[in-house]
């Protein structure tokens, strides 16, 4: 039983990060209808900045907040200057620009911080060997508890933003019908920029927590997390915030259980295979995901 709880808890903790990144994808998707393929690299780049600020002597929590702010500005700028102008032309153009960003940020990080840069990253939470609590026979590390709490708090804030504020209502209106949103006086450009900014800021936080668990920042930091997040967004239905969160947590738990109970076959190496199977399965069986509207256009 204690094994079960261990896998469950570890799964929830990694799932919290998948959820956060999936939320980023969903926020951008709802606003613009695009999948931001550069989301992971944007997070990674911000994480490097957080690390650098911390390296210069700024307390990590302050560095993380600064990183989020920089991320917000960066994301909003990218949307206004790079994405929106080509979005008029085609979705493929947006995809190519996102790929350009992906490659650009990835190689820029490598160029600035050395290749392969292996910078040690401290954790936002207590992370000494004995920083854990035993519950149900499983060890609940403070680090993992912290990630879970941050994940839930951010999700809660995001829900409040979308459902309780004027700006959130405007964001939902743009997602629902962009033309009508303009007609009721919503500055859609600002909403789209804010969506990207918000996604980038949350991504920066997620990246900082990922680097805290692995203890290092590398350009490939977010590759696999981005795959997990896309799996979560796919499973959740791409336009559903709640769906993304539940799907992210589910995927975290499922892959941890799978890796834990089948260490020989799946183990740490093939956890990613679980995510791939989920994406393939969902897209084949129910392309709108579990919670989505009929938005993912079908052939």
């Amino acid at each position: 039983m204690s094994r079960f709880f261990q896998y469950l808890f570890d799964g929830l903790s990694s799932g919290a990060i998948y959820s956060l990144l999936a939320l980023c994808l969903v926020v951008v998707y709802r606003g613009t209808g695009y999948l931001n393929f550069a989301q992971g690299e944007m997070s990674m780049f911000c994480t490097f900045l957080v690390w650098k600020l911390n390296d210069w002597g700024m307390p990590l929590w302050l560095a993380a907040i600064s990183g989020m702010l920089i991320g917000y500005l960066g994301g909003a700028t990218v949307e206004t200057t790079l994405i929106r102008p080509v979005a008029k032309r085609s979705q493929f153009a947006v995809f190519v620009v996102a790929i350009g960003l992906f490659l650009g940020l990835n190689s820029l990080a490598g160029a600035i911080w050395g290749a392969p840069p292996q910078e040690t990253m401290p954790s936002l939470f207590p992370n000494e060997p004995d920083d854990f609590q035993r519950i149900f026979g499983a060890s609940w590390r403070y680090q993992s508890i912290g990630i879970l709490i941050v994940g839930l708090v951010v999700t809660g804030l995001l829900f409040a933003l979308f459902n309780k504020t004027r700006f959130g209502l405007a964001m939902r209106a743009v997602a629902s019908n962009a033309d009508s949103a303009r007609l009721v006086g919503v500055n859609t450009g600002r909403v789209l920029a804010a969506s990207w900014g918000l996604a980038a800021a949350i991504g920066a936080l997620a990246g900082t927590m990922v680097a805290g668990t692995t203890g290092e920042v590398v350009p490939g930091l977010m590759f696999s997390y981005f795959v997990y997040a896309s799996a979560a967004a796919t499973l959740g239905g791409f336009d559903s915030l709640g769906g993304a969160v539940i799907a992210g947590l589910t995927i975290g738990v499922v892959e941890n259980m799978a890796a834990g109970y089948a260490p020989k076959w799946i183990g740490q190496e093939m956890r990613l295979g679980v995510a791939l199977l989920i994406i393939l399965g969902v897209l084949l069986i129910k392309p709108t995901g579990l919670f989505g509207e009929q938005k993912v256009s079908r052939v």
Binding site: I279, L283, R298
Partner: peptide, 29 residues
């Protein structure tokens, strides 16, 4: 195969997962 049911950009997700998974699989014990 998922392209039978979904449009361009979503297939990219499947291919993304394949790209990330492939090196991992080749290193699989």
């Amino acid at each position: 195969l998922p392209a039978l049911r979904i449009k361009g950009i979503y297939l990219a997700l499947v291919t993304l997962a394949v790209a990330v998974l492939f090196p991992t699989m080749m290193k699989w014990p």
